[in-house]
Nucleic acid binder design. Structure first.
Lengths: 210, 210
DNA sequence: GTCTATACACGGATAGAC
DNA sequence: GTCTATCCGTGTATAGAC
């Protein structure tokens, strides 16, 4: 209402700038980890001077924490509607598909998270031991109930969760290796669908669902 | 024969020094990746002055390449005896167990490799596109033969290899997360055996082996 | 708000004393 | 062979001009 400048609604608002920086930083942190990433590289990728990055984000650690938190919220909705009465086939299938989709939609965020864990989770230790552990235990309890009801084999559900996490995240985190071996620049939608179907089929059959 | 010093066969030979440095470097590179690792941190962990690390290893890149190559040789023997006449249950089961064991025996090496892939495989691109891709294709051909002979379901064997890689490596690369969720400092031998058994059971059943 | 200039610590690598 | 001292580029962060 007041500023006479910016006539064409150019993407020059504060939020747009912040998103540009966050996306650039996510990419650089994903490639090189917390220590290996430099503010210079982030600024270059964002097309801004280094000082602007610090002006908007405060300092390197705050920027990194903001990215971790953004990634956590993206994952929040997963597997949140699960009860002993649910159909394991439907719930676990959707779990696998959703994880694959999230990895495809946010490959840098997935790799950023992976780098944080590789580094020993210095910034996420409390989250892992608290919130995430509780998340796993509550889901595991429901799966135990499924086993007791004969809906699936009697396996340790925590290992099943690890299996689904690892096998789906692989296609984001190990993208460089997957692409080199499959001989493509990046996965097509068809391949993504094939991979989802493969994982669904093998994992569900493997734990006796259906 | 000639040096009168070192009477007690102290571990002061050149090879011992080099191994000390390599092990320290493996750990630091695993935690922070190539760029994030500093020679100072490596030297500190090895208990040596920084200049000695460079004296023995030449420069940072040569040290890193030596570590990658050491890790490749450790993986070399895996899944090398596989023919259409083999028993899939036995071969794939051993594949899974061996990968788990290697991840436990060389956790830093596994994480170092993971960090290299996360970074886009700048030093391993040729290896992935050449040697490793050929390795996968030859194993995939045998598995295709198994499917044709009715020994297992008709699935894409490359995805099966990715599944076994990802699910086993998870326990080395995501050790920090796994330990936080299971609530232990490190995995016991019993847990390792349980995990191997779980993965063998679910994956083999899931692709119709046996 | 935006950017240049700069402060000061740490990075990899080398020279040269011992 | 081993280590101290040092070079010089780059790192994060800030001061201050515009």
């Amino acid at each position: 209402m007041k500023s006479p400048r910016q006539p064409l609604k150019e993407r020059s608002g504060r939020e747009a700038q912040e998103k540009t920086i966050l996306d650039a930083a996510e990419c650089v942190f994903a490639l090189h980890g917390y220590r290996g990433a430099s503010l210079q590289a982030i600024a270059d990728r964002a097309g801004l001077p280094k000082a602007n990055v610090l002006y908007y984000m405060g300092n390197k650690q705050a920027l990194y924490l903001k990215l971790l938190s953004r990634m956590m919220t993206r994952w929040n909705a997963v597997l949140d509607d699960i009860t002993p009465q649910s159909d394991p086939r439907e719930v676990l299938g959707r779990f696998i598909r959703t994880k694959i989709e999230l990895g495809q939609r946010y490959p840098e965020g997935s790799r950023l998270f992976a780098a944080e864990i590789l580094a020993g989770a210095p910034f996420l230790q409390h989250y892992l031991e608290g919130e995430l552990r509780a998340w796993v235990e509550s889901r595991a309890a429901v799966m135990k109930a499924w086993s007791a009801m004969g809906k699936m084999d009697n396996i340790d559900p925590r290992y099943l969760i690890f299996l689904i996490w690892s096998s789906t995240q692989h296609y984001a985190e190990y993208g460089a290796q997957v692409n080199a071996i499959l001989g493509c620049e990046c996965l097509s939608n068809t391949e993504i669908a094939d991979i989802s179907a493969f994982l669904e089929r093998v994992i569900l059959k493997g734990c006796g669902v259906e």
